[in-house]
Amino acid sequence: MKILVCISKTPDTTAKIAFTDNNTKFDESGVQWIINPYDEWYALVRAIELKEADASTVINLVTVAGADADPIIRKALALGGDEAIRVNANSHDSFYIASQIADVAKQGGYDLILTGKETIDYNGSSIGGMVAELLDQPFISLAAKLELAGTKATLTREIEGGEEVCEADLPLVVSAQKGMAEARIPNMRGIMAARTKPLKVVEPVAADSLTTVAGFDLPPAKAGVKLVDPENVDELVRLLHEEAKAI
């Protein structure tokens, strides 16, 4: 069994979101970078669990990023995974990134490709589906459970107001979300081992970008909270009904 886990570097969840260059660039000054939580907590940890259940499993990590992502990949390798591949390119276009991952996937011949359900910066939820299409493989989005029996996968997928259980044969692309696994912390042994695990850097293949980021905006500041006396809850209901027209 060969598993490819897609890893993305994202700003820490508490990072201050600001922009420079006339609102065209994310202001990276002082920003701490982390592994995208969905990639780490759900996709990667589930892959590690599958390897724990079947020691012959090989886990490769892939990221499409510049060298500044290397510490993040090492951190992912510290959690688990046998080797990492970094496609040396910087892009914000999902199709370009998916094309690079699909190329790595084709060469590696993976049984299972796992991504997080979305990145917490661009919130695109797009890479998994695009990779699946480029590889002509089935795609299960927003999976909260994944079990394997031989070449058959059984998954639980989130749907509006509930969930559905489905089955598909490998190879398969899955985007992972909460429920898939429990977050782990790398231990000392993992951190030491990660230093010597292979991190292969490959150059990108030619691929199109379908979109560009023209600029960013910040939401308008809130006007400030209107506080209502706890002894006068009727006033809150009146405001919600008459002023906000929300109930």
Binding site: S94, F95, A98, N123, G124, S125, S126, I127, G128, G129, M130, A132, E133, L134, F139, I140, S141, L142, R157, E158, I159, E160, D208, L210, T211
Partner: peptide, 24 residues
Amino acid sequence: SNSMDGKAIAPRLSARMKAGLVAG
């Protein structure tokens, strides 16, 4: 709609038709 089903289908269609996708 960027609903759960939309998130499953739209990226595939984007890659299939080479049509730029704005998600969300």
